[in-house]
Design a protein around this nucleic acid. Structure first.
Lengths: 197, 197, 197, 197
DNA sequence: GATGAATGAGTGTTCATTCAT
DNA sequence: TATGAATGAACACTCATTCAT
């Protein structure tokens, strides 16, 4: 052995994360054994524990990666130099497309969060909260400027939209009649229509 | 022993279901051991397996109970002799209140469905589908009569609304500023506003 | 219910014994549950424990029944007023036919004897010993009168013959080319030929 | 811990097989718990399941080991450059001695075969069949050359002999009057005498 | 860096038997 | 006679993690 060429040059940690992501989404965190992960990644248990402190650390890393990406994308839309309705619509549609592009991660997110230890769980919720706040700020901006109706508290509006996004992994079918972009446009449209004054 | 009064004369099967519901919602299906369930119910493992064939059967029973109730309530609203917008608004708000009243069940529903065996999973999805169809029929009725906008396919509208309902257990806080009914009114309102022509 | 007619008037104990015999032979004593026995017999557990003290008692009863029958038949052949070679041949062939007629019992006999408690085991072995002795006496009679060779101790001759009989349930096939009687004749023939002086 | 010497440096898998063989023979497969096996072998359950996939695998390994040895010995005798009656007598006696040397294995063989899963059971039967065929070929060779009687089909002759061999664990007593070799000679003699023309 | 043998606490499930009715 | 709910101890097996090499 030594000099693992394996026909795959991807670094071992990434290989492990990729395998874990797929398996966690496929069978759930608890139903996926460390043995299965290392086999899928083509390494041994010792290697996993060399790079990650525990199985839970793999999950945490998956969360961190996803949260980072989503926050970056939201920030980009929210900071753009556009009318608020355009920025909100852009962000609302983008999160749909990004979620569909990474359905495995999204699936893990909402099904496995409670498998994190209390501290890590709290930390993920805090980061998620930041994300939510940024989105809410957009809604409030529009409500204050009168371009959106204020009939519904902004918090609720955000939760309403994200509820459907979070459930995409439950009902989205890649072979359905709508492309990810068309679907994203429809959902963003529903949000904007609900906000019409 | 002798004359087990237990301080609880609820029949054993119900006691087991109640304990399982609470624990599944609290720590998840996989993280809840049969031992914990029987201890919470104040019986022994033998008693559980006398009434239920497996841990999975408990889960299935929880699903069956919830599906039955929700379908009944939806049917009642949908069959009422009212204008379609009133019937849809009633059903949309009711499912929110009912979900909040049974947050544990709702939480289990969306987090544990994949723990059911393929056949049972399929069966639950089929029943869920019926429920979805009934709701969609209401939306389509309104779209055909012109009282609702047809901009978004009815299917999507339904998934959009239920996404947020299904995630209530994630973000609803009993000690929040809104009562269940107020919250339900807001969410139903968002739906109806999104459907304005 | 009451007045169990069940379409089967056989007394409950016999029904239980018949069901147990079949199941023990089919899946072995340990792999057969009391529940399966009572279901096959169409009664309840309480009924079984009304007639039999334990699962083991059922097994013991099966043994007792078989031992009784085999001893009776052997005695009849051995006590006949015939030449010793005819009596031995008759007994040797008869035990083959009887074993084939009751293959389930024979199978249970040699596979499940060690499931009996030490005392019962000892008792069965003692009765079996009586049977063996009777057979051996026939061989010795022939050896002493010079009609059989004395090259092999009678004990060994008996064990040699019964070895193949006991294994009939392993290799006998009802759909094979030989009828039970033809097979019995062949095996008795082998025994007698081995005993030729 | 530290430097487990255990008073036994036999490799763990062998220790487990030896313990399992003794216990299966002593109390039967079903009555032997995995816990008892690992305790007898001085290891933990985890170690057992590291080397064997299941309790059944232990049984299968015992079978494989015995089948291999017996086939090798039979082949050696059958392929020898001797007269057929000498080869058959040698093989017939040898299987008796080998069986007595490994009475535990022999006992397990005939009492526990039905505990194997259908596929494994089939495989063992197939290998056993090969063994039987080789032995039968010897008998037939002698019958065709006229040195053995053809009165009895060779198949039956083989089953007759092996019946008693298989039951050795039932009636052989190490403290009896005959040594294994003497016993083996007697049984081989019975076989050969039965085959005299 | 990486291995893989070994641990030990835990899992869901089975089952002969008892006993109040 | 007969029921069936309930017991409680046992069972085979799993798995995240450790550690000497």
């Amino acid at each position: 052995m030594a000099r693992t060429t394996d026909g795959d040059d991807t670094p071992v940690p990434q290989r492990l994360l990729a395998a874990a992501t797929r398996l966690f989404a496929e069978r759930g965190y608890d139903r996926t054994s460390v043995q299965e992960i290392v086999e899928a990644a083509g390494v041994t248990k010792g290697a996993l524990y060399h790079y990650f402190g525990s199985k839970e650390d793999l999950l945490q890393e998956i969360y961190a990666r996803m949260l980072r990406i989503q926050q970056e994308r939201l920030d980009a839309y929210a900071d753009a130099d556009e009318l608020v309705e355009k920025r909100l619509r852009g962000a609302a549609a983008d999160v749909v497309v990004t979620t569909i592009d990474n359905l495995d991660d999204a699936d893990i997110f909402f099904r496995s969060m409670h498998h994190l230890s209390p501290e890590k769980h709290k930390q993920v919720r805090a980061e998620r909260r930041r994300y939510h706040e940024r989105f809410r700020a957009l809604v409030e901006e529009g409500q204050q400027s009168g371009v959106f109706s204020s009939a519904t508290p902004a918090d609720l509006v955000v939760d309403y939209h994200f509820g459907s996004v979070h459930h995409l992994s439950t009902w989205y079918r890649p072979d359905g009649p709508l492309s990810p972009h068309e679907l994203a446009d429809h959902l963003a449209d529903l949000l904007l229509r609900a906000l019409r004054p």
